[in-house]
Design a protein around this nucleic acid. Sequence first.
DNA 1: GATCCGTGGCC
DNA 2: TGGCCAAGGAT
Length: 349
Amino acid sequence: MPDNASREIAEPLLDWYDANARALPWRAPPGTPAPDPYRVWLSEVMLQQTQVATVIPYFEKFTTRWPDFASLAAVEDGELMSAWAGLGYYARARNLLAAARAVAVEHGGQLPGTEAELRKLPGFGAYTAAAVAAIAFGERAVVVDGNVERVIARLFAVADPLPGAKPRIRELADSVTPDERAGDFAQAMMDLGATICTPRSPKCLLCPLAKRCDARADGRPDAYPVKARKKARPTRYGTMFWVERNGAVLLVRRPARGLLGGMRALPTGPWADSPPGVEGAPFAAGWALHNATVSHGFTHFELVSALASVTIDGQAGAIEGEWWPIAELDSAGLPTVFARAAETMRRMR
DNA sequence: GATCCGTGGCC
DNA sequence: TGGCCAAGGAT
């Protein structure tokens, strides 16, 4: 790292961090020994595309139930998915469990300590491998997340739009990453991005790097980073099926991959460009198609789902799935869209 | 490189 | 209201 980059960026940023670091459950205080790699890893996975305030209660729940790699590796798939319910991006939970088991089997129960080895584990991309290597193991790794991209783009007034500018931003991040305290430096950059160098209305008057910031000098810090416009989300339509029998409702397990993969769910028909009615129902019956719908925004489409219901008396026959007591649906581990649909049905019936 | 993959909060 | 955003990864 060039001397001027250290003097103008790393040193004042680390000084700021020493005085202003957020106290977070997975974080050791600045200057103290590195925190538990298990807790660092778990927090980093939960924090992918998810804000700190959302993560904290999940992190507390997970670390209470499963305090280390061995206990997590022993969990059954369904139990882990239920615990993750509501946090979103469920592939993270599937990869988390796969990585825990790989660590138990192939690494003697300890997370490998280098960025290159971490990168091979499920769920460890460029960001997470660098973050865990730097924060938990003290490796000099270049950690680039959305916060770092924004801070760097402003410090150097990077005019090229994302995502094309990612390689350039990583080069610049590399050039300002110190050889010592790379983990604290990464967390300082992310704290700065989350609290000072925010996407809208950055608080430049409080910023320890304002003197050195090219975007600040231009007078338009919020113009960076430049981003390509996103496509509009299409609306898709579907139907969820509520099958009631003896005070219980039929739940199914969704396929292991894809949307809400591996999660417990209400039976659904296909998503379509227009309301499909009771097409794709789990079995032929006298379905009542209700007027109420449930709308839910996913990452790349907006779902508007109708609700259809039927009550079965006597034997369930060959119906596949679990009969879950309606009074205990809160403990079923349903993703938010199904939890809301279930709540709507519970009130309507 | 483009697409898929959740959810909640903000203005 | 609706688009944008958040400690990204897999394919």
